[in-house]
Design a protein around this nucleic acid. Structure first.
Lengths: 168, 168
DNA sequence: ACCTGAACACCGTTCAAGT
DNA sequence: ACCTGAACACCGTTCAAGT
């Protein structure tokens, strides 16, 4: 009852991210989420259709922290900088890579993917070659984050960078 | 009560895979699993420590279907053949990529990773370069399977193959 | 428009008890 | 050794009702 800011979708998502950071996928519960917002669990369903919605929003939310710089001089630096930050954002929220498999693509993820693609296009890639290289890079980042975030492989910035060297 | 074969860990895992195939991560329930085996939910806990154990076993189980050929003449064919089958196994069980993020590595996954690494070693990779290329390839496969299995990207064998061309 | 309360149909897991 | 039954502390979600 300390909590008197109105419940908004934004506050729901922010709190969901906090809960996920604290307890992993296991830590997010509609009831717990509601408790944090000083509201009944059932109240959430006025703002949000389902728990899966909350998960989708939470995943997209953390990609909002990946800086989307203005296109710089060097397209390669632009692309690699984005991929670097992309990976780091997921390592900061280790529950994210496993959830990235959800079918929904949020606006933040979309914007970053498009930035990557346009940087590569400036590098001379086009058509099918552009599609291939974009996918290879994006999938490499996702796979890396997934294995590193769960401790299956120790996070290693240099190794990740060396992998980029091998591709781009 | 039709079911009179004894409950074993193997049967538990096989049934778990079936349940996951039918209903995704959402479809696997200790109670449902037990029902299929004509046994009480609590009986499972004699064979298995926790539901997470079942998930780990199920993930490793499907990698047992990835053929581990004898090392052939062409190391590149060996490596790419394995990666191809690896991806296909995950696409046959779309719940798997998202669960691959669990910390536990089972023996089947381990054996396949080692086969990949040894094929690449035959190709002349060694030391740090070997580590890097192994990771790049494994992470590319995992990332591809993750995005394709959930319909975020349409599965496309040729595109996947073209990605391999760009790396190896 | 926004929230509560009660209710429904579930969960995973523990533990004493049976055979 | 292997399984049951009862129990505990939870879940997500719907829906009528309140303000």
């Amino acid at each position: 009852m300390r909590d008197r800011e109105p419940v908004t979708t934004e506050r729901i998502v922010a709190t969901a991210v906090a809960l996920l950071d604290e307890g992993g996928a296991h830590g997010l519960t509609m009831r717990r989420l509601a408790g944090r917002l000083a509201v009944t669990a059932t109240a959430l369903y006025w703002h949000v259709k389902t728990k899966d919605d909350v998960l989708d929003l939470a995943v997209d939310r953390i990609f909002g922290d990946v800086p989307l710089p203005a296109a710089g001089a060097d397209w390669r630096d632009d692309a690699r900088g984005l991929l670097r930050e992309w990976r780091l954002a997921m390592l900061r929220h280790p529950w994210a890579p496993g959830l990235i498999g959800r079918p929904v693509v949020g606006p933040n993820v979309l914007a970053r993917t498009e930035f990557l693609q346009s940087a590569l296009a400036r590098g001379g890639y086009a058509g099918r070659r552009l599609t291939v290289i974009t996918r290879v890079l994006a999938n490499y980042v996702i796979g890396s984050a997934l294995t590193e975030a769960t401790g299956r492989a120790a996070p290693d910035d240099d190794l990740f960078e060396a992998g980029l060297d091998a591709i781009l």
